[in-house]
Design a protein around this nucleic acid. Structure first.
Length: 418
RNA sequence: CGGGGUGUAGCGCAGCUCGGUAGCGCGCCGCGUUCGGGACGCGGAGGUCGUGGGUUCAAAUCCCGCCACCCCGACCA
């Protein structure tokens, strides 16, 4: 992508109507724009980051047998009435709207009911279970107060997977598999070391649910971490009984602020039963389907990563999610420099390496500052000097050192995490 | 939803106490000089002062209502 053609621009000033660091940085760098409180649009670079995160999640979900779907946003009240979740007194953060004829509709905030309903006509026999179905879709929740930029919006991108199993044993097996897949996701996003599987309140169907909590000062949750065992307990369930059950000693736990970046829980047969979805077992008996749900906030993760991977100059994206791997800063517009820069841009692009090519008519300082603010992992400077020497100046975003190298050396360095 | 704060040019702000019809920096446009860490000079464009009402000869400024945004709290199946 040539920067001269990118319609977004960076800003030198921090937006006044944001105090969350993630939103400040992402807006300043032109990744997102704010529409209203808790509602953001994703601009070209932000869209790339969001897609990169979603893709990592998608790959891990596919890996455990997930089938991707896209369910409707508009919701039919009837099925929600069957499960008892239509009433505002039960679920208070619905967005609801109306058809022209006055019929009420819901705007999707989760999808247990519609998916189970859709599944019902397809599942009859134990031979057809288990199934694991997921989507990556915008969710709408009418939060009383949104805050912390992308960490808590009224409209946000979420991956939600639902498992349908024929027994508790099968369910538990998949549940653990899903938990492992979540760990892989966080590892790939570069936050594996600060993310903990956390015991949290389980609702009516199981004693605990499992949250995945990433340590961060901007977190809304308080968790108690057992570093050696890589697990944590959410403050909301921390009692002596629970500690005994988990064989945890209170004085081995460290209190931390954390952001909930995932939550998986067991739902039993409540939704399947309330929507009359059953299967016939080996003996010809009708049985309940055991369900689980597994969420990851994609846009929230983007906010968390922006918050975590940043310094006083701007963002510092992990390579896996960065909107581009390399930032080519071309200094000067003499023909030799332009030729070398254009060629490098083409060569890297042809090697499937994503490049942001700063071909704008700006001074060096402006380009360096933008490279830093945008947080592109690697920077290559091209100038008359490098053109004359037929080599390139390379620098990592997270280091101050620059190195001169040949194209082959550069390609080797840039290709290494592909 | 309770408490606190803020709304003035694309962005960041001053002006409001003490009413007289709007200014600064950045950005943008033109010309010139510059050109490896956010250059400089000269010229220029751009504003229903959140919104509705009231007071007044006169309102960005005073009074009342509303809306939006931020923060703290409560809430988050």
């Amino acid at each position: 992508m040539r920067l001269s053609q990118l319609f977004t621009k960076t800003s030198k000033t921090v937006p006044a109507d944001e105090s969350a660091r993630n939103a400040q940085l992402l807006i300043q760098a032109g990744y997102i724009s704010k529409e209203m409180a808790g509602v953001y649009s994703y601009l070209p670079l932000g869209k790339r980051v969001l897609d990169n995160i979603a893709q990592i999640v998608r790959e891990e979900m596919n890996d455990i047998g997930g089938q991707e779907v896209q369910l409707s946003v508009l919701q039919n009240p009837e099925i929600w009435q069957k499960s008892g979740r239509w009433d505002d007194k039960v679920v208070d953060n619905w967005f609801k709207t109306k058809l022209k004829n006055g019929t009420e509709l819901g705007i999707g905030l989760t999808h247990e009911e519609p998916l189970t309903q859709a599944l019902g006509t397809n599942i009859n026999s134990y031979k057809e279970l288990p199934v694991y179905i997921y989507q990556i879709q915008t969710k709408f929740r009418n939060e009383l107060r949104s805050k912390s930029g992308l960490l808590r919006g009224r409209e946000f991108l979420m991956k939600d997977l639902y498992s349908y199993s024929k027994s508790q044993a099968d369910h538990r097996k998949f549940y653990e598999k899903a938990a492992d897949a979540y760990i892989k996701v966080y590892k790939r996003l570069g936050i594996g070391d600060i993310t903990y599987r956390t015991y949290a309140s389980g609702g009516i169907f199981s004693k605990f649910s499992d949250e995945f909590q990433t340590i961060s000062d901007v977190g809304e949750d308080t968790i108690y971490v057992h570093e050696a065992r890589r697990i944590a307990v959410n403050k909301e369930v921390l009692t002596d009984d629970v500690l005994n059950e988990l064989k945890l000693n209170r004085n081995e736990l460290a209190e931390k602020k954390a952001v909930e970046v995932g939550n998986i829980f067991s739902l039993g047969s409540k939704y399947a039963d309330s929507l009359d979805v059953y299967f016939t077992d080996e003996k010809g008996q009708q049985q309940s389907v055991i369900m689980g749900s597994y969420g990851i906030g994609i846009s929230r993760l983007m906010g968390l990563l922006a918050e975590h991977f940043a310094d006083d100059k701007g963002l510092v994206w992990p390579v896996n999610v960065a909107p581009a791997k390399v930032y080519i800063a071309r200094l000067g517009d003499d023909s030799a420099t332009v030729k070398q820069a254009d060629k490098l841009y083409d060569d890297l692009t042809n090697s499937s390496i994503e490049v942001i090519y700063d071909d704008r008519d700006l001074r060096a300082g402006n380009k360096f500052a933008d490279a830093d603010l945008l947080g592109i992992p690697y920077r290559v400077v091209i100038s008359t000097t490098t053109a004359n020497d037929n080599n390139f100046e390379y620098k990592s975003r997270s280091s101050e050192e620059t190195h001169r190298m040949t194209f082959e050396e550069l390609l080797k360095l840039l290709g290494r995490d592909n």
